[in-house]
Design a protein around this nucleic acid. Sequence first.
DNA 1: CCTATATTTTGACGCAGCGTCAACTTTTGT
DNA 2: ACAAAAGTTGACGCTGCGTCAAAATATAGG
Lengths: 238, 238
Amino acid sequence: METLSRKQREISDRERQILALARPILVHEGYQALSMDRLAAQMEYAKGTLYNHFPNKEEIVAALAIESLELRRKMFERASLLSPISRHRMMAIGCACDLYTQECAEHFAVEQMLRNSVIWQKSSEKRQVLIQQCEMRAMSVVAGVVRDAVAAGDLTVPEHMSAEELVFGFWSLTYGSHALIASSPSLSEVGVNDPVRSIRYHGWTLMNGYQWKPFISFDETESLMHQLGERIFGDEPN
Amino acid sequence: METLSRKQREISDRERQILALARPILVHEGYQALSMDRLAAQMEYAKGTLYNHFPNKEEIVAALAIESLELRRKMFERASLLSPISRHRMMAIGCACDLYTQECAEHFAVEQMLRNSVIWQKSSEKRQVLIQQCEMRAMSVVAGVVRDAVAAGDLTVPEHMSAEELVFGFWSLTYGSHALIASSPSLSEVGVNDPVRSIRYHGWTLMNGYQWKPFISFDETESLMHQLGERIFGDEPN
DNA sequence: CCTATATTTTGACGCAGCGTCAACTTTTGT
DNA sequence: ACAAAAGTTGACGCTGCGTCAAAATATAGG
C-alpha cells in the first residue's frame, strides 16, 4: 500500500517535471525546438514514458497554456479586489494585463501558441473544456466589475449591449496591442514609439467615452496604475 | 532570344502557379497540410524545382502573406478616398478591416500565420523588408487621415502622442477583436454574442472619446458604414 | 520466499516531411 | 553541330512523431 502510493506519487510528480522541463524550451527556443526525443533525453526517461503522460506533443503545450491562463485569472481576481471604486478596479485589471505580458512574458507567449489552430485542434476535449472554463472565469471577473459599476451608478452600459460585450472592447484593445507588440516587426519603424503607454491612454479615453465615473485625469491614472501594479504581486508571486 | 523569354515566362508563371496552388491548401487545411512533396506532386514537377523558386516552405507562406498584405493596403487606400470628411474616412477604413476579415477570411488567416514567429524568422531578409514596407504604407494611409483631421480642425491629437500612436489604438482594437473572434473558442459561450457590432460600437465610442468631429449618432454610423462598405470593392475586386 | 499476474518502462521501428545534390535533360550561344 | 550554361529530377540523409512488443518492475496470494 505504501509502495503503491510512493510509486503513484512518483508518477504524478513526473507530470509536473515534464511541464517544468518543457516550458523553458518552449519559451526560449520556440515550438519547433520542443521535441519529444529531446524532452525524453533531458528527463532521462524513454520516450514511451512521456507518452504515458501526454498522448501527443500538443497536449503538453496545452497543459502549459492552462497553467498560464490560471495565473492570469488569479492576477485578474487579485487586481479586481484592490479598490472599492469600480473605475479603479477596471484600471487595476488593465494593469494586470500589462504586468502579465511584461513580467510573465513566457506565459503570454505560451497562451499565444494555443491560439494557433494546430495545438488547439489536437488537444483533448477534456483540456479544451478546462481552457474554456478558465476564459469564462476570467471574463466573469471583469464583467462582474462592470455590473458593480452599473449597480453603483458609475457607468451606463448602452442598451442592446451586455456587460460581456463591453468588456470585449477593452479585451480587444489590450489583447490586440500586446499581440501586435509581440509580433509586429519593429513597431517603432512605423512610428509607434511607446505602445504600452499609448494603449493605457486609449484605454483611458475609451473609459471616458463610456463616461465611467469618477473621471480621473490621465496623469492621475498613470500614478494610480503604478501603485496598483505594485500590489498585484502581493504575498504569493505564484 | 525569343525562346529565352518564353522559357523565362514559363518560369515566372510557375511561381504564381505555386502560390495559387499553395493558398487553398494553406487556408483550408492549415499549415501542417501544406507539404512540399504534396505541392510538387500537384504541380507535376519535381520537388527540387520548387526549391529553385523558394528556398523553404516558410518563404512560400511569406510570399502568400505579402499578397494578402497588399490586398489589405489597397482596400485601405480605396476606403480612405471615399469621403472628404475625416471621421467618415476613418470609419471607412474600419469598415475595410471588417470586410477584409470577413470576405477575405483566407487572406486574414494567412496574415495571422506570418505573425507566428517560425515563419517570420525563417523568411528571407528581402521578404521581411517587403512586409515591413507594406505595413508602413498601410499605417501611413491611416496616419494621413489623422493628420488631415488635425489640419481640418476635426481632431486634436493629445500632446506627447504621434498620429501613428493614435492610429495604434484603433489598430489594436480592430486587430485584437478579429484575432479573438478567429481564435477564441466560442466567444458566445463567454457572453459575447455579436462581437463585430460590439467592436464597431467601441470604435465609435473611442472616436467620441477623442472628440473626433463631426459627431454622428451610432445609428447613423451604422448606416453610413454600410454604404461605405459597398463602395470598397468597386470595379476591381482584386 | 516464490511465483503468477498486473503495471510500467523501454527503445527500435515505421512513417512522413524537409532540404540536398549528383546525375540527367534541355536550352543557349557560337 | 557541339560545348557550355541553365534547368530538372528524384533518391537520399536526416529529424521528429507516435507505436508496440518485449523487458523490467511492482503487487498479491500461497
